[in-house]
């Protein structure tokens, strides 16, 4: 399974009129942390592409696994080669919906709580995710953030016994994006 975000984007942009119908970013941030008292495991990806459809609150995210950067070079190498197999599965994709979209007022420049539900595809495995998100319309754009927890096991990511105590089973994921109206 290889979701083609490019085709998806082209379809969306071709059926919507230009301007305010889609909010877009290609510099969204996703941070994950699976630290334990024995080891700090923290990676950041600042090149996440995402769009939000104004008509119905549909949300899409796509990030390249190799764009997750670690401070430690060896950790980054192990993450890519041994755990998440980025050569085989180069992308992580989330496709979802803001369930209470009708209650979100984009004209109100204040933080509003959103209920997010969707499917995260990672390491070739898709799982349903639900989370609380915050949407804050400001300066013509929307600042959005969200945090949730996933388990490596759910995505069939195998962690060798020898390092099992150093890597947390539950991985905290936090997402931060600054959407801007899409203008081409």
């Amino acid at each position: 399974m290889k979701p083609n975000i490019l085709i998806l984007l082209l379809v969306i942009f071709s059926v919507t009129s230009y301007g305010q119908d889609v909010y877009f970013t290609k510099t969204g941030t996703v941070i994950f942390d699976s630290s334990t008292p024995l080891e700090t495991i923290h990676a950041e990806n600042n090149q996440v592409t995402s769009f939000l459809k104004i008509a119905d609150g549909e949300l899409n995210f796509a990030g390249l696994i190799k764009s997750f950067k670690f401070k430690n070079a060896l950790m980054e190498e192990h993450f890519n080669e041994n755990y998440i197999e980025s050569a085989k599965y180069p992308k992580a994709v989330f496709k979802g919906q803001i369930l209470n979209w009708a209650a979100i007022d984009l004209d109100k420049e204040e933080a509003q709580e959103a209920d997010l539900e969707g499917e995260l595809t990672l390491h070739g495995v898709s799982k349903k995710i639900t989370a609380k998100a915050t949407l804050h319309p400001q300066n013509g754009g929307i600042q959005a953030s969200c945090a949730f927890v996933v388990s490596a096991e759910d995505f069939e990511i195998k962690i060798p016994a020898v390092v099992r105590d150093k890597i947390a089973k539950e991985v905290s994921v936090s997402v931060n994006v600054n959407y801007e109206p899409f203008n081409r």
Partner: peptide, 14 residues
């Protein structure tokens, strides 16, 4: 730089 792959565009990092 390092080639990270392609989303809407091809990403080169570092």
């Amino acid at each position: 730089g390092q080639c990270d792959g392609m989303l809407t565009d091809v990403v080169i990092s570092r």
